[in-house]
Design a protein around this nucleic acid. Sequence first.
DNA 1: TGTTGTATGCAAATTAGTTGCATGTCAATT
DNA 2: AATTGACATGCAACTAATTTGCATACAACA
Lengths: 146, 146
Amino acid sequence: MCVNCDYRDLLESAGLEPTTNRVRVLEIIGNNQFPLTAADIFTTVERSHSINRVTVYRILELLVDHKLVERLSAGGRAAHYGLAPNDNHAPHHHFFCTRCGRMDCLNPGSLDLSSDRLRKTFSGEIERIEIRVDGVCRNCLKSSVH
Amino acid sequence: MCVNCDYRDLLESAGLEPTTNRVRVLEIIGNNQFPLTAADIFTTVERSHSINRVTVYRILELLVDHKLVERLSAGGRAAHYGLAPNDNHAPHHHFFCTRCGRMDCLNPGSLDLSSDRLRKTFSGEIERIEIRVDGVCRNCLKSSVH
DNA sequence: TGTTGTATGCAAATTAGTTGCATGTCAATT
DNA sequence: AATTGACATGCAACTAATTTGCATACAACA
Ligand SMILES: [Zn+2]
Ligand SMILES: [Zn+2]
Ligand SMILES: [Zn+2]
Ligand SMILES: [Zn+2]
């Protein structure tokens, strides 16, 4: 739960109409402590208000395009969505459990990447750098001990 | 083209029968200078010898399981496959062009990640760390200049 | 009042990958 | 030689995740 983020504000300052569906989707992403799949988000919204699956996908794309939300590629097939770095949310990387398929946020600063050499020599344009740590989460480790 | 890798050998030393299909798939991955999708690999094999799509998927999974090949998650939906680090191939990370969807290999050493802090504090088990740089490749930059 | 733009819904299509089951091949076993 | 079992492959059908096309609704605007 993020008490500092006003999701309606975030939408508006990105130049987007803060429709109820958009606010709901963004709230769910922002209030969750780990990134969610489109399906997760859909079923969560659905629990309280009817919404179409396609609408969720369209909102997610919009939010990603406007950099309010980050699309994270998991080891599995479904993309995960998390709040993009902003004043209240420091940039950080993610862990993907290959056993249960859950993603977790890593502490900002727990990984240190230096990309100076690349930025000096690379001939294309760099937009973002995604780091994903794959492995087995604590829970899954625990439950595999008999 | 890698003159140093004997793909039949690689398969055998991983304890796998070097069947013609497996050798072909591994050769295509190894001789390519950037990672390919399953579909790419399928059509490449197909051009000279008949093979089933499913066989390609099964071989890819086998090769990944035996660590001869690495599965890389691209910004898009399809996984890309590249040769896993071995005596002739230094570990390196990848670039994904969001415009043309092509992946490229970055120079080994152009990115430097220190994960000590994470490894000290993380409560799960870390298997691998994947870094993907997203952006626009040189070719796409060039062709967008009018 | 008519027109345009934007948000959403619904059905169908597409993409990428997986599963179930049949067949062929080869080597070991009877 | 016939039998068995372990793979490797093929083919058809399936599933999951996402996308597309088209219809509707509503609000702002001319
Ligand atoms: Zn887990
Ligand atoms: Zn996160
Ligand atoms: Zn490109
Ligand atoms: Zn590579």
